[in-house]
Amino acid sequence: MDIVIREFAVGDKMNGNDIDDSFTVDSTIVLSLSGRQIRYTVKECPRYTKRYSDEQFEEASDEDYSEYIDNPNQIVYLACAENQVVGRIVLKRNWNKYAYVEDIAVDKKYRRHGVGRKLIEQAKRWAINGGMPGIMLETQSNNVSACKFYESCGFVIGGFDLHLYQGIHKHSDEIAIFWYLIFDEHQ
C-alpha cells in the first residue's frame, strides 16, 4: 500500500467522520511511579468500543483547520492511500517549546500498515526543522494499543493526570497519560 503524507492545503475539507477512529478497549494501563520513572502494566477489563468522534469530541468533527495553513507554529498533515484521506496529525508549537500533537488518527481499516508511523516521522521532521526539543502528546489509559504504539516510536511516559477526564464524566477512571519523544542533539 502506497501511503503519501502531505500538508493540509487551501481547498482541503476535513470532516472528522471521514476517519473511523474507533478502537476496542479490552484492557487498561496501570501506572506505577518509582522515583522519576513511570512504569506500567496492562490489566484486562470488559470489552467495549470507543470512538473519539462521539461524546465530547462531537464539536470537533468538522474542525476548520484553515488557520493551520502557512502558519509556522502549527500544521496539519494528511495521510493518503488509494486516493482518500486515511489519517491525520494536527501539530502545534506548545508553550514549553515541544511540538504538541493535538490529534492523531488513523482510519481503523488502515491501521497496522505504517500510516501512524509515517505521520509520527513527519511530525519529527517538522519539530526538528522548527528547532523544537521533542514531541509531546496525551492519550488515555484505556487506549492501550495507542500507548504501545507511541512507546514503539520511542516515546516515554513523562506524566499523568488522574482527574482530566472526570470533568467530562464525573466517575471516569480514565487516566490521561502524557508521552514525550525527546530528541537527542544529533537528530
Rank of each mutant, 00 (worst) to 15 (best):
M1N: 10
M1H: 12
I3E: 11
I5A: 08
E7S: 12
E7Y: 05
F8M: 09
A9H: 11
V10A: 12
K13R: 15
K13G: 10
N15Y: 11
N15M: 08
G16D: 01
G16M: 06
D18I: 11
I19H: 01
D21W: 08
S22G: 07
S22W: 00
S22R: 05
S22H: 01
F23V: 05
T24H: 06
D26E: 12
D26Y: 04
D26M: 08
S27K: 07
L31W: 00
L31V: 02
G35E: 09
Q37P: 00
Q37M: 12
R39H: 13
R39F: 12
Y40I: 02
Y40C: 01
T41V: 02
T41C: 07
T41K: 09
V42S: 09
K43G: 02
K43M: 09
P46Y: 06
R47N: 09
Y48C: 13
K50W: 07
R51A: 13
S53K: 08
S53V: 03
D54N: 11
F57T: 05
E58T: 15
E58L: 14
E58W: 12
E59H: 14
E59A: 15
E59Y: 15
E59W: 14
S61D: 15
S66T: 12
E67A: 12
E67K: 14
Y68C: 04
Y68G: 03
Y68D: 05
P72N: 07
Q74C: 13
Q74G: 12
V76H: 04
V76L: 09
A79P: 10
N83Q: 13
Q84I: 02
G87F: 05
I89P: 00
I89C: 02
I89E: 00
V90E: 09
V90F: 00
L91K: 05
K92R: 15
R93C: 11
N94L: 02
N96D: 10
K97G: 02
A99V: 06
E102V: 08
I104D: 00
V106R: 07
K109S: 14
Y110L: 06
Y110Q: 09
Y110C: 06
R112Y: 13
H113L: 15
H113W: 11
V115T: 01
V115N: 07
G116K: 03
G116P: 01
R117A: 09
K118P: 03
I120A: 05
E121V: 11
E121C: 06
Q122A: 02
Q122H: 03
A123N: 08
A123P: 04
W126I: 03
W126G: 06
I128R: 07
G130I: 01
P133T: 06
G134H: 01
G134R: 04
G134M: 04
L137T: 05
E138A: 14
Q140M: 03
N142S: 06
N143E: 07
N143Q: 08
V144E: 01
Y150A: 04
F155N: 04
F155S: 08
F155G: 05
V156G: 12
V156S: 14
I157P: 08
I157M: 04
G159D: 10
F160D: 08
F160P: 10
H163L: 13
L164E: 10
G167S: 14
K170Y: 13
K170G: 14
H171W: 12
S172G: 09
E174A: 08
E174C: 01
A176T: 00
I177F: 06
I177R: 00
L181W: 03
I182Q: 13
F183R: 07
H186C: 11
